[in-house]
Simulated scan of single mutants.
Amino acid sequence: MNTPWILGLTGGIGSGKSAAAQHFIDLGVHLVDADHAARWVVEPGRPALARIVERFGPQVLQADGQLDRAALRQLIFQDQQQRRWLESLLHPLIGEEIRNYLERAESPYAILVSPLLIESGQTAMTKRVLVVDAPEELQRQRTMARDQVSAAQVEAILKAQAARDERLRHADDVLLNDRDPAWLRSEVERLHRFYLTLRGGQP
């Protein structure tokens, strides 16, 4: 059986990358979300959670034994050394989790969805990169409407993510999502047909 090639799917906040990802799933494409993998590696009973508690103490746990992300974020937010320690623990585990999941794919290609695909170096796992793009003003409007957050909060998130032109520089394909949901679906279907013709992610 041919091993599926990996498509990296990314986009800034409010670009519509989750909606695009769902359309690919509906078309039968095997997909893993890096954010989900990041949650799996710190579930109760997993070694990473024990290491985190050992380092930061029980205050990073909720009453039910789950990781208290907000408490941990608070502890590492202003301490670069602690943040680096956490990243060096989690990034390899997340990468391994993603690879294991992608290896089980039975579709001709599989997708790794990650908001930080470029910043985290996860592009190394992919053969091709699809960027879901939208004008920044539209990203702001969508995010404020969806998450009920202030303009200042949206700006902070936009600043933390890779600059739009940096993302586009890494793109093999760009899906401009500036119209309605039906347009997005038809664009995903068009790309899917194209991807099925590729061997190893290249024409």
Rank of each mutant, 00 (worst) to 15 (best):
T197A: 13
A162Y: 15
R190C: 08
L112E: 03
P92T: 03
L49I: 06
D133S: 15
L49D: 01
D172W: 13
S186A: 14
L184C: 02
I52C: 11
P44D: 03
L116K: 01
V131R: 04
A182T: 09
G45L: 12
A152N: 06
Q80D: 11
L196R: 11
E189Q: 14
G16H: 11
Q22R: 08
M144Y: 05
R46G: 00
G45W: 15
E166G: 05
D178W: 09
G16A: 08
V29E: 03
R190S: 10
Q80C: 01
M144W: 08
Q78N: 09
R164N: 05
A19Q: 10
S186F: 00
L93H: 03
Q122W: 14
L72E: 06
D79V: 14
T197R: 10
G201W: 02
W40I: 10
Q66C: 11
T123G: 01
G14E: 10
S186W: 05
T143G: 06
A19C: 10
Q82P: 00
R193Y: 05
Y109S: 02
A63L: 11
H30F: 15
L102I: 10
R179Y: 05
R39F: 06
R140Q: 06
Q22E: 13
M1K: 07
F56C: 04
Q148E: 06
G16S: 09
E166H: 09
R199S: 12
L9E: 01
L89C: 05
A171I: 04
L112I: 08
P92V: 01
A151H: 03
V154Y: 07
G28W: 11
V113T: 07
K159V: 08
P44N: 04
L168Y: 09
Y195F: 15
D68K: 02
V132I: 15
R146Q: 14
H36L: 15
M125A: 01
A50T: 09
V149L: 14
I6V: 09
Q59F: 03
E43N: 04
D35I: 12
L116Y: 07
E97Y: 08
R199D: 13
L86H: 02
I25T: 07
G28Y: 07
R164A: 02
I6R: 00
G8D: 14
Q62A: 12
L9A: 03
E136Y: 00
D173Q: 12
F77I: 00
G45V: 12
L175G: 03
R190Y: 07
Q59N: 12
D180P: 04
L196C: 14
A105S: 15
Q81T: 15
E97R: 07
